[in-house]
Nucleic acid binder design. Sequence first.
DNA 1: CTTTTTGCAAATGATTTGCATTAAC
DNA 2: GTTAATGCAAATCATTTGCAAAAAG
Lengths: 138, 138
Amino acid sequence: MTEQELQDSLRARGQRVTPQRILIHRALRELDRHASAEEVLERVTAPLPNASLPTVYATLELFEELGVVHRVPVAGGPTLWDPRTDGHHHLACRSCGRVEDLEGELDTAKLLRAARRRGFRPDSAEVVVGGLCGRCAD
Amino acid sequence: MTEQELQDSLRARGQRVTPQRILIHRALRELDRHASAEEVLERVTAPLPNASLPTVYATLELFEELGVVHRVPVAGGPTLWDPRTDGHHHLACRSCGRVEDLEGELDTAKLLRAARRRGFRPDSAEVVVGGLCGRCAD
DNA sequence: CTTTTTGCAAATGATTTGCATTAAC
DNA sequence: GTTAATGCAAATCATTTGCAAAAAG
C-alpha cells in the first residue's frame, strides 16, 4: 500500500492524517519484515524524536482495522506486525521465535466449509508452519 | 494422553512425577478446551490449595517440550493451552478472541516443501481460520 | 474553533525470576 | 542424602489508560 493510499484510507474513515501515522506506515514498509511495536518506534524515532509507544500501539491497531497491516500473535514475545495485506502463510521457528512469510497455494475450501457449518463467518485461512529455522536446526 | 503415559513421558526424560504435574495435566484434560494458566490454576487449587502460578507456567512449558500440550498464542489475551496432541486446526474469532478446534483434512505437502526449500525443518502445519464466531456475527 | 491525536506518567495484566523450603528419587 | 520442584514475593515485559497539551481539519 502506498502512502497516498494510506492517506485516502484514513480520510475515508474520517481519521486524521498525521506525521506519526505516515511515519509508522513508512517504517513498516521499510523494515519489510514482521516488526514489533518497539522496533517500529525505534525507526520512527529518527525523524520524530518524541514519538511514543502508546501512539505506535494505537496506530497499529487503527491500521489493522483499516486493513493496512496484519497482527501476528507470537508465543513468548511481543506481537508482530506484518505490512502485507494479502492473505499469505507463515513460518515460525519454535526455537528462536522468528516469523517469516511463506509463499504457496493451499486449498482451504473444505476447511472453510467446515467452519461455516459451525456457525462461523470466516474471512481468512492462514497456515502457520512450525519447526526449526535453518539457523536453529543445529 | 493418559495419566500413565504422562508419568512414563516424565520419567523417560529424567523429570520427576509430582502431584502438581499430575493435577495440572488432569485439569487440562477435564477442562477439555483451550485454557489459560490462570484457569488451570483455579482448577488445580481445589485439590491443592497452595498451588502457584509459577508452577503452572513452568509445568505447561515442560509439557510443551514433552509434546503433551500445544501452546496457542492469542492476540490480546493470555496464551491458551490445548491438551490435544494431534495436529489440528483452529477457528479464531477476531471479535471476542475465542479459539476453538476445527476438524478437517488439508493437503499441506506443497507448503511443507516450500518451507524446506527455505532451509526450514518443519514439524507441523496448522491452519488458523479467522473471522467471526456465531455469537459475534450480529 | 472543535475534536482528534499525541506524549507523558502511571496503571494493568501476563509471565518470569530469585531464593529459601519442601519433596522426589 | 542429593538434586529437582515448589511457593512466595518481587521483578520484568508488553500493552493500555488517564489526562493535559498540541495539532488537524
